[in-house]
Design a protein around this nucleic acid. Sequence first.
DNA 1: TTGCGATCTCAACCTAACTTGAGGTCAAGC
DNA 2: GCTTGACCTCAAGTTAGGTTGAGATCGCAA
Lengths: 151, 151
Amino acid sequence: MPVARLKPTDLITIGEVARRTGLSVSAIRFYEEQGLVEPLRTGGNQRRFLRSDIRRLSFILIAQRLGLSLAEIASALASLPHGRTPTARDWEAISAAIRARLDAQIADLVRTRDRLDGCIGCGCLSLSHCAIWNPQDALGEEGPGARKLLA
Amino acid sequence: MPVARLKPTDLITIGEVARRTGLSVSAIRFYEEQGLVEPLRTGGNQRRFLRSDIRRLSFILIAQRLGLSLAEIASALASLPHGRTPTARDWEAISAAIRARLDAQIADLVRTRDRLDGCIGCGCLSLSHCAIWNPQDALGEEGPGARKLLA
DNA sequence: TTGCGATCTCAACCTAACTTGAGGTCAAGC
DNA sequence: GCTTGACCTCAAGTTAGGTTGAGATCGCAA
């Protein structure tokens, strides 16, 4: 089977990629530095991207939007064959993990909100018996570990 | 009316405050630097906290937990009479705002999750008609502005 | 009065995700 | 062939929320 040759028109400059993805040029360069994309180079050392890179970058934006860090996205992409942009099947696997994460975040926020509501109602602050001031259970974790609240 | 004198036993060292709040000593110093607490000083320049400072710090922890930045917390506390720790009434006002914020966050996450579910089901990635790849409406904002997704 | 743990200040470092600037090169149109 | 806008690299800066370390001082208790 003949391998399709790269027509010059298939190669996209970084500015064009930026325009099409909404990313800044510097962000794209940064993503390359992080190993998230690997553009080709011209003889003059300028980056040239493939169409699939745009999808790849869009995927990164979405995954980021869903709460993954660049490091996590990188490792998700790294598990795919070199240079491949996720297919539907890949996406299914990745998204299942993301889904679990979203569920947890939502549950956590809802729990917090309920607690807050209770607190507004009870008008405490007199402390020592307020759910939000005195959370026994793990209130999720987004900082450096849970903190004891209240002296 | 006689002003209550500060008995030495009412003054708390930073280490003690750390123990009682679960904060690190360095975090407490950092909070002072940010204007969130204003401990007294001994003749030897060591910090001495009031009991109310512990509540104040606990309030900070809770507000942080609820998603406020230190800057926001600072401005919330700044609107109170100098050095006062929020009372139930203050708390009610502040928490109403926080509540709205939580609601928005939850709604956003739920919307995202639903979208993700649709996407898993539709098995797309062929793009151009996928809700998550093509979000028209504002997908919330936690970065430097919304991005166009998809080329 | 001496020992020593707790504190002090100040500066530097940390992560994440980028941006900004300086100084230099590429490439396409006229 | 020249101009000009787009690109290049590399270093440093940014924000948030702190931590870490050095070197000096406090203050309580024996």
